[in-house]
Write a protein that binds this DNA or RNA. Structure first.
Length: 193
DNA sequence: ATCAGGATTGGCT
DNA sequence: GCCAATCCTGATT
């Protein structure tokens, strides 16, 4: 089932951990989806967060309603998708275990190995066809959705339910020591171990 | 108007 | 491990 707005109206770190094991779904002509196995939280007063210096045109979605997608372009090449929890806070989806639409994901990524298909923030957006067009869209009322872990009968991501590993975040240059990255222990689909 | 730098990835050494 | 690709944003002149 689709996660309701109330799911997102909670402490950002709590939401981040609860997102692990959930299904990120993109419904188009064809559906692609994968289980969230790795996330990072970006908080208020956090120098690494895009919202740190206040609201701008680019980051305005982070200051909007919880449960919406904040999508941005990085290095002029890749897009990353975040789950907004409100007040300038958001959760970066860093890796998925492919679930539905494997063939389309492989075509979009130009490769076949499921382990490398969505094991990175730029990879998973490409695999699911997420672009800047999805910036600001609702995750509970639209084609891009987050669903509970039991959404695919009889199927569960590797390492879920199970232990959650907490580490420092990847690829940032500020607030490098904050332990705000979370992933499913035992998953082969995380971006790095 | 200009410019440095980025929540990355893939290819090469 | 190192580095180029590629372009938008925000800060500065």
């Amino acid at each position: 089932m689709i996660l309701s707005p109330a799911f997102y109206e909670r402490d950002t770190v709590t939401v981040a951990k609860d997102l692990l094991g959930c299904l990120l779904v993109h419904r188009e002509e064809e559906t692609t989806a994968g289980w969230i196995v790795e996330v990072e939280a970006y908080l208020r007063g956090d120098p690494a967060a895009h919202s740190y210096r206040g609201e701008t045109k680019r980051n305005s979605v982070m200051f909007g309603p919880p449960g919406h997608a904040y999508v941005y372009l990085i290095y002029g090449l890749h897009t990353c998708v975040n789950v907004v929890t409100g007040a300038g806070e958001a959760i970066l989806i860093r890796a998925l275990e492919p679930g539905i639409g494997l063939e389309l994901m492989q075509a979009r990524r130009g490769m076949s190995d499921p382990v490398s298909l969505a094991s990175g923030p730029g990879k998973l957006t490409q695999a699911l066809g997420i672009t800047m067009d999805q910036n600001g869209t609702s995750l509970y009322d639209g084609p891009l959705q987050v669903r509970s872990p039991d959404s695919l009968p009889g199927r569960r991501p590797e390492g879920f339910p199970g232990e959650i590993v907490q580490t420092t975040r990847i690829g940032i240059t500020k607030a490098v020591d904050l332990p705000l990255r979370f992933y499913l222990k035992g998953s082969r689909y995380v971006s790095r171990r």
